[in-house]
Design a protein around this nucleic acid. Structure first.
Lengths: 148, 148
DNA sequence: TTGTTTTTGCAACCAACTTGCAAATCACCA
DNA sequence: TGGTGATTTGCAAGTTGGTTGCAAAAACAA
């Protein structure tokens, strides 16, 4: 599981604190619980799913969105838009770069780790996937903006 | 420009009609104007941009969304989610498979045609892009759904 | 042309996400 | 360890991209 291999809650808690501090974010209960959840379970999860998974009343919806956006900004978390209208979030484990495949019908999301399209497609075909389409999107700072 | 190389409005109009009929969609004024626009200009465009580009009062917002969704369904058009919260649409020219890069700051969108990540990244770096991230998402019908 | 089906426009609606603000919590340092 | 200023949270209201119900209009088939 990459850089995260905690056996106990306490270890995960300590890891959260370290990750937050390393990114210059102050350590608060909501931030720890949200990040902790993303370390513990794989995702990707929608904000709504995350809210439901957290202990009742542990954190407001607005806080979930605010924290997730902050995490994305500092690249602790990755977003994807597998479903129109709803972002999904996942811990950004730099040792386990991967991609997602979503079923067009049941919306089940799986991960895989190959990274060349042709290879990916044939391996997915072998697994029984049909009607495969992909979308590759790239985000960066353009030359003029990095000078501005 | 791939399968579309019309010199005149009339030719583009005829192409629209053919494309719509081939996909089993009935030919209506809004569908022709929306598809015609996507053939004429490259995009990707948001629904709002498309609405603005169409002649005043030529077509309702709801119709734009409905048509675009139909086009995506029959794969006449591709969607991407370059910006959170807003889909972008583009004519799906099968002869010119390509991807997009969006500047994280100014949101300018460019296209490019390479398709292996390592090559892409180094070619973008040469163009002056910094802080490059990518997102590859794959959509397909899973084995159990294609049996159901 | 006529009858049936599909599509459109309008306006109301929906859901994901954001925001303003006062109260609570955090980080810092004496 | 406690006090103080800066940051974050919860709440509730707001924004916005996109959808929907329905009657009128347009498309299609005979």
């Amino acid at each position: 599981m990459g850089i995260l291999n905690p056996k106990k809650e306490i270890e995960r808690d300590a890891l959260c604190i370290k990750l937050l501090k390393d990114k210059g974010l102050s350590v608060t209960a909501p931030r720890k619980s949200i990040l902790g959840l993303l370390l513990k379970e794989h995702g990707p999860f929608s904000a709504e799913e995350i809210l439901k998974k957290l202990p009742k009343n542990s954190c407001d919806q607005a806080t979930v969105y605010r924290c997730l956006n902050q995490f994305v900004e500092v690249q602790l978390v990755n977003t994807s838009f597998l479903e129109k209208d709803m972002a999904h979030f996942e811990f950004n484990d730099p040792h386990h770069h991967h991609h997602h495949i979503i079923c067009k019908i049941c919306k089940k999301i799986e991960s895989f780790h190959e990274c060349l399209m042709e290879k990916i497609e044939s391996s997915l075909q072998k697994k029984g996937y049909k009607d495969i389409q992909h979308r590759l999107e790239i985000f960066a700072v353009c030359e003029s903006c990095s000078k501005g």
